[in-house]
């Protein structure tokens, strides 16, 4: 377990920035009320075995008691670094993203299941969409009842979505909460 160095921080933040925009500040400066300390602490990012964890500082302090080899996980895993040095977000960071998302998409109840099985979001299944989405932006996918289902990358801008045919892909699937079942071992 170690703090991220500068390049790693940059890659992580850039990825998060895609989804949250300027709300990233909220994530970084989020006060934590864990631990015995009377005042609010902070959250920080820690790298452990290629995975990046979003942990409160008080938890980090206590985790130092555990040897590196023994430590399995701490806080919330938000993603992992690939061997090539890229950063991939995982499902666990969904709640973090959902609360700070800049671009959102709501799915019709009929297409929810399809998305949860790992399919892309089609125009036909689109309930609502926020404005000003540019292709390539990170988009958080919600159900109509505002339950976060997953996230992905916008394939079309909001404007283009209007004219799109119902089978056109609007959001490219990255992760969804179905992975908790499908990829239980890997998470």
């Amino acid at each position: 377990m170690r703090p991220l160095d500068e390049t790693e921080t940059t890659t992580v933040f850039e990825k998060l920035f895609k989804f949250t925009g300027n709300n990233l500040k909220n994530i970084v400066e989020n006060p934590s009320h864990e631990g015995p300390d009377p005042g609010p602490g902070r959250y920080c990012f820690r790298l452990h075995k290629n995975k990046v964890y979003y942990v409160s500082e008080s938890l980090v302090k206590r985790a130092t008691n555990i040897a590196r080899t023994q430590l399995v996980s701490l806080g919330t895993c938000i993603g992992r670094f690939t061997h090539g040095g890229k950063f991939h977000l995982t499902v666990q960071c969904l709640s973090l993203l959902a609360s700070n998302a800049k671009h959102k998409v709501w799915l019709k109840p009929t297409s929810e299941m399809s998305f949860l099985y790992g399919n892309h979001v089609l125009k036909g299944g689109l309930g609502r969409i926020t404005e000003n989405i540019v292709p390539g932006d990170g988009v958080v996918v919600f159900s109509m009842s505002d339950v976060p289902l997953g996230f992905g990358i916008a394939a079309k801008s909001t404007q283009d979505c209007r004219k799109l045919d119902p089978n056109g892909i609007v959001v490219l699937h990255q992760t969804d909460i179905g992975e908790y079942l499908r990829m239980e071992d890997e998470l």
Partner: peptide, 24 residues
Amino acid sequence: LPVVEGKGKHSQEQEQTDKVLNKL
């Protein structure tokens, strides 16, 4: 950077994250 920093100290890690964030 150190995994855990003392309370009284100025946090280097915080500085670093702020720097990266502002840049971004």
